[in-house]
Computed example of a mutant assay.
Amino acid sequence: MTHTKAARLIPAGLLALSAVPVLAGAVRVAELTGGAAITADSARFHAGPVPVMLHIAGVTVYSVLGAFQFAPGFRRRRPAWHRAAGRLLVPCGLLAALTGVWMTLFSDLPAGHTGLLTAFRLAAGSAMAVCLALGLAAILRRDVARHRAWMIRAYALGMGAGTQAVLFSAWYAATGGDAHTVARALLHGLGWGINLTVAEWAIRGRSRRAARQPIGGADQPSGGARSSAADS
């Protein structure tokens, strides 16, 4: 498969992965607004529905719209759309990250969701917010390469739920039961770790291609120094 064909498949794959948090969020919204019975697992969401709803809204927009930012041909053909989407993605990503941190700190978490898992969630949410801030700061300096790198890392962290769902499905298929406390935490951490590893591989691959490309070549980033402050 050529690099161009592979690049076209990336947004489709990301959209498929984003279906997990989007559908889970839709189910949660239906529970909160439809008078569903309160269970031990859902009680914390009913006790503080505002950050939950904000988190779901942020994650939904960020994961779906963000997937199209990884379509290089689309970015080149519609740079104005890319910049406009970036202006929406940054606040939505920050909303998703910070509400996630808020819920981890202030929700009454059920048994099995504290300890190591809490540490992983706080680390991932905080790192995602930092990556978005650094990506925004980079584009304000017209540093497109660093901007893209930080935004790729932020999106990888934001898509952790999709990868974690795949890992939990594999765990259930292999063991026939739910993951215990430590395994649950490690599977969550592994999901973020896998995404960050793929992100770093993609960033370094882009850097190697850029280093081989002659100045003014076809792979020069679209928009260049003219990219807007919220280009992502």
Rank of each mutant, 00 (worst) to 15 (best):
F120D: 02
L157F: 14
A145R: 01
G125K: 02
W171G: 14
L140Q: 15
L117G: 03
G125L: 03
I152T: 11
R153M: 06
A156I: 12
T99Y: 05
R148S: 10
R142E: 02
T114W: 00
G115A: 09
S107C: 01
F120L: 11
G158M: 09
G112Y: 04
W102Q: 13
H147Q: 15
H113M: 13
V144Q: 07
R148D: 15
I139K: 12
M103V: 00
V130W: 04
L109R: 15
A133S: 08
W150S: 00
A173N: 00
W150I: 07
A97Q: 14
R141N: 02
W102T: 14
G135H: 09
V101K: 02
A124E: 15
A111T: 14
G135L: 04
T99N: 06
M159W: 09
A127D: 04
A119K: 13
V101R: 11
T104D: 02
L167C: 07
G100W: 04
R153D: 10
M128C: 12
H113C: 07
T175R: 14
L105R: 08
V101G: 06
R146M: 06
A156R: 05
G158E: 05
D108G: 03
D108I: 02
A137K: 02
L167T: 05
M128R: 06
A165D: 06
A124H: 13
G162F: 01
G177A: 11
G100I: 13
T163I: 13
T175P: 11
L140T: 15
A149K: 10
H147W: 00
I152Y: 02
T104L: 04
F168D: 09
G158K: 14
G125C: 10
A133Q: 10
T114D: 00
M151R: 13
T104A: 04
T99E: 12
R153S: 14
L98T: 12
A129C: 04
A145H: 00
G177I: 06
T175A: 07
A133W: 08
H147F: 02
Q164H: 08
T163F: 05
R148H: 07
L109Q: 09
A173P: 10
V166F: 10
T114G: 09
M159G: 14
G135F: 03
A145Y: 01
T114Q: 04
R141F: 00
T118M: 03
D108H: 06
G176R: 03
A119D: 08
R142F: 03
G125A: 02
G112H: 00
A156N: 07
V144F: 08
L157M: 08
M159D: 06
M103Q: 11
T163N: 12
M128S: 12
A111I: 10
L140G: 12
D143V: 01
G162T: 01
I139G: 15
L105S: 05
L105T: 12
M103N: 05
A165H: 01
G100P: 01
W171N: 11
A174Y: 12
L132R: 05
H113R: 09
L122T: 11
L98M: 13
A154T: 12
R121W: 06
L116M: 08
G158Q: 06
L134Q: 12
A149F: 10
A119Q: 12
I152W: 03
G100M: 09
F120Y: 11
A129E: 12
D108C: 01
D143A: 09
G158C: 04
G135N: 05
V144L: 04
F106P: 06
G160R: 15
C131T: 01
A123I: 05
A124W: 15
S107K: 03
